[in-house]
Nucleic acid binder design. Structure first.
Length: 262
DNA sequence: AATTCCCACAACCGCTCTTAA
DNA sequence: GTTAAGAGCGGTTGTGGGAAT
């Protein structure tokens, strides 16, 4: 049967957004709120696809977006979460308020992946985070001008704050592993955070891991088994990574000392 | 000064998932 | 149960700007 295109492509603008288009979109959303993306362009007087409008708003115009360089603390968290979650950019972005999945994805593809690749393909991933923070590996832009990037100093400065994830659609975490049934059970806890909108920081920035969960509930046994059976998780790897993550989350005042990881 | 190359990032595309009729 | 619209995600591409030659 085939799906109808999300919108008629005829006569629609493509490519970079103009200031006027930005203004029209922002004005409309301020007045009417987000959503109804398909009909939004017409109502807002834009010659754009609804998807394009949504993307522009989500990745660029939204007022809560934090722009600027990704700091060492954020970078550290990205690396850790990527090790744990893979390319689930929206999940990773959910833990970094003000950052978008697109931004994190770009940052990963342009900087972090290169740095990690340079470490050597056969390196054991279990020590990936600390290695990625190794000054010897910090040769590109963010670190070019940093004097003596001692790992401990860097981490002490960073004092990583962990934030509750933005509410997200339940996506198929196990999709790659054909464990779809997991999603149909009561495991909304698997990837979704509590119903907090817009990545707002709750409780003075100090949030436990997926409230209402017990430690270790992040992956349920079935999924974890699948991951292990496909060789995506080696013995002790997940425990170690998740332990590190819990350690981050459990530090008082949302700040952590990571020097033990160096 | 002109040209080429490289990189970062914005935007697009195709797909999946959810939801409502 | 089926279908289609709406929404979201992740991979990929296009483009502009700066660096190098």
């Amino acid at each position: 049967m085939g799906r109808a295109p999300c919108c008629s492509k005829v006569g629609l603008h493509k490519g970079p957004w103009t200031a006027r288009e930005d203004m029209l979109l922002a004005k409309y959303i301020q007045a009417h709120g987000e959503g109804q993306w398909r009909s939004l362009p017409k109502k807002a007087g834009l010659l754009r696809c609804g998807k394009s409008c949504r993307l522009r708003w989500m990745n660029y115009l939204r007022p809560d977006i934090k722009r600027g360089n990704i700091g060492p603390d954020e970078e550290d968290l990205i690396i850790r979460l990527h090790t744990l979650l893979g390319n689930r950019w929206s999940l990773i972005a959910g833990r970094l308020p003000g950052r978008t999945d697109n931004e994190i994805k770009n940052y990963w593809n342009t900087q972090l992946s290169k740095r990690i690749r340079n470490r050597g393909a056969d390196h054991n991933h279990q020590s990936g985070v600390s290695e990625a923070l190794d000054p010897a590996n910090m040769k590109d832009n963010n670190y070019k001008n940093q004097e003596n990037s001692n790992c401990k100093e860097k981490i002490e400065r960073s004092q990583t704050q962990i934030h509750v994830p933005k509410p997200i659609r339940l996506t198929s975490f196990p999709r790659d592993f054909q464990v779809m049934e997991a999603r149909n059970s009561s495991d909304s806890k698997l990837v979704s955070g509590p119903a907090v909108h817009g990545g707002e920081v709750v409780k003075e920035d100090l949030i436990g891991p997926w409230p209402d969960l017990k430690d270790g509930d992040l992956l349920d046994e079935e999924i974890e088994h699948e991951l292990r059976s496909h060789g995506h998780i080696k013995d002790g790897m997940l425990e170690k990574l998740y332990g590190e993550y819990l350690e981050l989350l459990n530090e008082e005042e949302g700040k952590v000392q990571l020097d033990s990881l160096c």
